[in-house]
C-alpha cells in the first residue's frame, strides 16, 4: 500500500472513530434527555451527526475514485449550491438565458478546465470571461430594470458557488516537489480543518458561549466559541502536519488562516441570509439546512489556502 493510501486510511479511521464517539454520545443523550424525540437541540445534534456520516462516506468514495471522482463530487456541490443561491436572488425573466448559461455552460467549462489541467485559463474563466459575457447575454433581452443588481448577483453566485468552491479540487493540480501523488491529502487537510473549526466553534459556543460576537448577523456565534474554536482547530491542523508538505508551525499558520477565513466567510453568508429573510439556504442536508450552510466556510478558505500553497510550495 502506498504511503498516501496508508495516510488516508489512518485519517478515515480517525474521523470514523470520532464519529462513532459522537454517534454514541448522541444516542446516550437522546436516551437520557429526549427519549420521545421532543428535545429539539438533541434531535438536531443527532441529525447533524448522521449527515456527517453521509458526508464522510461521500468524500471517501470520491477519494477512492480518484481525480475524476473528486471533480464530479465538487461539480455536483457547485450545482446544488448555485441552485440554492439563484433561488434566493432577484431574478427577472430577462435573466433566464444568463442563468441557464451559468448552470449549463459556465459550471461545466470551469470543471472541465480543471480536469484538463488548464490552470491559466481556469483561473480567469469565471472572473474575466463569465464576468464580461454574462451581462452581455442578459442585456440582449432588453430589460434594464435593476440591471446592475441582477448581473452583480448572478456573478457573485458564480464566483462563490462555482469558482471559489472549485478551488478545493484545484488543489489536485498543484505540483509540490517531494509531495507527488499526495495532493488529495491537501483536500483532506483543508476539509478537516474547516469543518472541525465549525464544529468546535459550535461546541465551545454551546459550553461557554456568553458574549455574542455579531448579534445583528448571526445570533448563535459567540466570542468564546470563536476563540475556542479557532484555537483548537488550529492545534488540530498543526497535529496533521504529517499529511501535508508543511512543517508543524507552517501547518498551524495555514490552519489559522483557514479557520479565520472560514469564520468570516460564515458571517458574510449569514448577512446575505438575514437580508433575504431566511434562516437556512435550503433543506438539502437534514439538521444542517442547505448545502451552502455547510459549505460557506470551505468556499471562503479554499481559494486562499490554494494560493498560499501555490505561491510558496508549488512549481506550477
Amino acid at each position: 500500500m502506498s504511503t498516501t493510501a496508508l495516510d488516508m486510511l489512518k485519517l478515515l479511521l480517525g474521523v470514523g472513530g470520532i464519529l462513532v464517539i459522537a454517534s454514541s454520545t448522541g444516542y446516550l443523550l437522546k436516551q437520557k434527555l429526549s427519549p420521545d424525540g421532543s428535545n429539539g437541540a438533541i434531535e438536531n445534534l443527532n441529525a447533524r451527526i448522521k449527515a456527517w456520516w453521509a458526508m464522510v462516506f461521500l468524500i471517501a468514495i470520491a477519494f477512492v475514485a480518484g481525480r475524476v471522482g473528486v471533480l464530479v463530487l465538487f461539480a455536483f456541490c457547485s450545482f446544488a449550491a448555485l441552485r440554492e443561491f439563484i433561488t434566493l436572488i432577484n431574478t427577472r425573466r430577462g435573466d433566464h438565458w444568463a442563468i441557464a448559461a451559468a448552470f449549463f455552460v459556465v459550471l461545466p467549462i470551469n470543471y472541465f478546465l480543471l480536469w484538463a489541467e488548464q490552470y491559466g485559463i481556469y483561473s480567469i474563466f469565471v472572473p474575466v470571461y463569465a464576468f464580461l459575457l454574462m451581462p452581455i447575454i442578459a442585456v440582449l433581452r432588453g430589460d434594464p430594470r435593476d440591471f446592475l443588481l441582477r448581473i452583480s448577483e448572478v456573478q457573485w453566485a458564480l464566483m462563490i458557488c462555482v469558482f471559489c468552491a472549485s478551488h478545493v479540487p484545484a488543489l489536485l493540480t498543484l505540483q509540490i516537489p517531494g509531495y507527488e501523488g499526495r495532493n488529495v491529502l491537501l483536500i483532506a487537510f483543508l476539509v478537516i480543518v474547516v469543518q472541525s473549526s465549525d464544529v468546535l466553534q459550535y461546541v465551545w459556543g454551546k459550553l461557554f458561549g456568553r458574549t455574542k460576537i455579531a448579534p445583528t448577523l448571526s445570533p448563535s456565534k459567540t466570542v468564546e466559541g470563536f476563540v475556542g474554536g479557532v484555537a483548537s482547530a488550529t492545534l488540530l491542523g498543526a497535529s496533521l502536519w504529517w499529511i501535508t508538505p508543511f512543517t508543524p508551525v507552517q501547518a498551524a499558520l495555514m490552519s489559522f488562516v483557514i479557520t479565520m477565513m472560514g469564520f468570516f466567510g460564515g458571517l458574510v453568508m449569514s448577512a446575505i441570509k438575514r437580508d433575504r429573510g431566511v434562516k437556512d439556504w435550503g433543506h438539502l442536508i437534514e439538521g444542517h439546512g442547505g448545502l451552502i450552510d455547510r459549505l460557506d466556510s470551505v468556499v471562503f478558505s479554499a481559494p486562499i489556502f490554494f494560493h498560499l500553497t501555490r505561491y510558496w510550495w508549488s512549481l506550477t
Partner: peptide, 18 residues
C-alpha cells in the same frame, strides 16, 4: 412555489431552482 421561474412561458431551457 417557484416552478414558474424554472421555465417561464416561451423559454425552452429550464433553469434549476428550488
Amino acid at each position: 412555489n417557484n416552478l414558474n421561474r424554472v421555465m417561464p412561458k416561451g423559454e425552452f431551457v429550464p433553469i434549476p431552482l428550488i
